[in-house]
């Protein structure tokens, strides 16, 4: 649905987007992840025809964003960051205005608006002036607007920013639901959001794509190791020495915690070491109170891939 090839956007002294290429398939939810100023918004603005790229091509739903701009715009629903709305209009009026602007035939307008009001849960505030609505409701009015012409592609720039946790959950639910019938490209820097909502993640940093895969694959790819956290009652040093005796264990550290010890075990290689550790503990008759695997979160991946480059740079310099 979205094909981007070697897209570059150059500003006076820097490349906001630097030679990126990616494809988004139909009915896929792709998360665009990156620190502030990484080029997320710029990428989206190019895809929505708000600004052109310096070099490279992009097609959306089969139309080129540079030469077929009006057709592209008809196919997308775009929710910009901060959700700009006309604050002096009533929610229903605003949606009516947008429906006309997006060439929805007169007869279908009411039905479409009703549907969007329902979908985003703003039916009871439709008569209110947008300026008086809370942030969460404004966000939903914006979302309703992006949905109104039933676009094939939704481009959402930080759709959950500034919402309270309950609203975030609701909006996420809405987006996830949309993913069944629409192609969604959303940007965020909230990581759990990506894990929950997206089929695929694209991490971009300084205008370049640094990683792109499904959230679970990304976690597998990067060094997950087999790290365990255990809580064992007994004498710390003794336990440590017997645990270190296991072949597959690389290192063991511990610290006192209440009346027991908390152990951190690093396994060598990819093999699951939980059974070995368990057997060892049972053999020596220690009391095991807790054992859990330490999984690497998307947050760590993000941190790793976005800081790796800077470290390399400083090393080179």
């Amino acid at each position: 649905m979205i094909k981007v090839n070697n897209l570059t956007k150059r500003y006076v002294n820097m490349n906001a987007v630097d030679d990126i290429s990616f494809h988004v398939k139909e009915n896929e939810i792709v998360g665009l992840l990156g620190p502030n100023g990484a080029g997320k918004t710029t990428t989206m603005r190019i895809l929505t025809c708000f600004m052109p790229a310096t070099a490279g091509t992009a097609t959306v739903a089969g139309y080129d964003v540079f030469t077929d701009s009006l057709n592209v715009r008809q196919q997308i629903g775009y929710l910009p960051e901060n959700v700009p709305l006309y604050l002096d209009m009533r929610a229903y009026e605003y949606l009516m205005f947008r429906a006309k602007l997006k060439n929805i035939p007169r007869r279908e307008r009411r039905k479409k608006i009703e549907y969007c009001l329902e979908m985003t849960g703003i039916k009871d505030v439709q008569k209110q002036i947008i300026g008086t609505l809370s942030k969460g409701y404004k966000q939903r009015v914006g979302l309703a607007d992006t949905l109104i012409h039933d676009p094939k592609i939704l481009i959402l720039d930080e759709p959950t920013i500034g919402l309270d946790p309950n609203q975030i959950r609701q909006i996420r639910g809405v987006i996830k639901g949309l993913g069944q019938k629409h192609t969604v490209l959303l940007s965020t820097h909230i990581l759990p959001e990506v894990e929950m909502v997206c089929d695929r993640v694209m991490i971009i940093n300084k205008g370049k794509i640094v990683a792109m895969d499904t959230p679970s694959n990304l976690m597998k790819q990067l060094k997950t190791g087999s790290n365990l956290v255990l809580e064992i009652k007994g004498e710390g040093e003794k336990i440590k020495s017997s645990l270190s005796g296991i072949d597959t264990v690389e290192s063991v550290t511990y610290r006192k915690k209440d009346d027991a010890n908390e152990f951190y075990i690093n396994g060598s290689g990819e093999k699951d070491i939980r059974e070995d550790v368990f057997n060892c503990i049972v053999k020596d008759n220690y009391i095991l109170r807790e054992m859990k695997r330490q999984t690497i979160t998307l947050e760590e991946i993000f941190h790793q891939v976005t800081t790796k480059e800077t470290e390399e740079e400083t090393a080179n310099a």
């Binding site: 603005r45 929505t48 025809c49 708000f50 009006l70 057709n71 715009r73 008809q74 997308i76 775009y78 910009p80 700009p84 709305l85 947008r98 602007l101 997006k102 060439n103 607007d145």
Partner: peptide
Amino acid sequence: METLMTSP
């Protein structure tokens, strides 16, 4: 301006 200019 952004919502306006990204409409058809």
